[in-house]
Amino acid sequence: MPNSPDPSPRPVRRLAGWRLIVVVFVSVFAVGTSSWAASASWTAAPVTLAGSAAAASVSVTSTVTTPPTGQFAVQVTSPPVTETTHLGAFTYANTGTVPLALTVAATNTNGTLAANIAVTFWSASTAALCGSSVPASGTTSGALTGALTLPAAFASVPAGSSLALCVALRLTTTTAASQGQTVTATFTLTGRVGANWSATAASAITQSVYRVPDPGTVTCTNGTGTSTDPVGTVTLSFPRAVGATSYNVVRASTPGTVIVNAVPPDPNAPTIKVNGSQLGVLSLGSVPILVQAVDGTYGTVSAGSPYTLNVVVLGLLGLRC
């Protein structure tokens, strides 16, 4: 009888197959559950990056696009709005690469006048669209000496864009109260991204208040002894002051006390006569005086052009040049 094949090798092959499966499973499981094994066994071809990364830039510009009228001259009676209020415009631009929140602050060179100028802001897409009057809504208000708040449109200005900041400056006192004063206000614009990135730019506006100018150099002529030009009286002559409606003569020591106010017969060649009783002289000597121009339309008085008169004995105390 032929020998039967030994059946024992078949189970061995099956066992070997199970061992292979176990080895493969263990290997896969080890790679899948060990981060070190995964990163160590993974490779990839190098990749070249196209393009570049650029840091954000923060920058702003400020331009006085429409300068406001530079001088306030407010009439005493029924002044028009154009005299009390000056309109202008800045153009604020975000020249950086990220949106910016804009704020503005003002400094000044004359706190007294700055306190008497009210500021109103509103926004427009361009300075040409600011209009010719202050709008009824959408404005913010302050003073050149106080905190200034920009309109809501400036809370987030996109990169590469610009906005017009329309401004109205209003004198809150009279011409007489602020005459001759000047203030330069510097508006500093700040653009911010978060708490640490910022950029600034500044623009300045100068405002003044009208004061009638002094008359020219004063000359003097002694009285000739006629009925209209008695001895002891002097005639003061001077070039006219532009805008003057009359002239004062005052003592230099008390410039606020008017001795003589006169409207000259010839406004182009003004003269004023003064005698000792008008000056109230009580003793011999010199008396410094000022000749002031008066502009009654705007209620302003000039500082005065100086001259010194002499008190002499002419029967009674009288004046001489």
Rank of each mutant, 00 (worst) to 15 (best):
S34P: 09
W36T: 15
A38K: 12
S39T: 13
S39E: 15
S39L: 13
A40D: 14
A40P: 04
W42V: 12
W42L: 13
T43C: 01
T43Q: 11
A45S: 15
A45W: 04
V47I: 13
V47W: 02
V47L: 12
T48F: 06
T48L: 11
T48Y: 06
L49W: 03
A50M: 13
A50V: 15
A50F: 12
G51F: 12
G51T: 14
G51I: 13
S52I: 08
S52R: 11
A53F: 14
A55C: 09
A56M: 06
A56Q: 10
A56K: 00
S57V: 12
S57N: 13
S57M: 09
S59E: 10
V60H: 02
V60A: 03
T61R: 10
V64Y: 01
V64R: 02
T65G: 09
T66E: 06
T66W: 05
T66S: 13
P68Q: 12
P68L: 08
Q71Y: 04
F72G: 02
F72W: 07
V74M: 08
Q75V: 04
Q75M: 07
Q75I: 00
V76I: 13
V76K: 08
T77Y: 05
P79R: 01
P80T: 10
P80D: 08
V81R: 14
E83C: 07
E83W: 08
T84A: 11
T84Y: 03
T85R: 15
T85M: 04
T85I: 03
H86W: 01
H86P: 02
L87P: 01
L87G: 01
A89R: 04
A89Y: 06
F90N: 00
F90Y: 10
T91H: 09
T91F: 08
T91N: 13
T91P: 05
Y92T: 04
A93V: 10
A93G: 09
N94K: 04
T95A: 09
G96N: 08
G96M: 12
T97C: 09
V98P: 02
V98D: 05
V98M: 04
V98I: 14
L100D: 01
A101N: 13
L102G: 06
L102C: 06
T103H: 08
T103Y: 11
V104Y: 05
V104M: 13
A105S: 12
A105Q: 11
A106T: 05
A106H: 01
T107F: 02
T107R: 02
N108L: 07
N108D: 11
N108A: 11
N110S: 02
G111C: 00
G111L: 07
T112V: 04
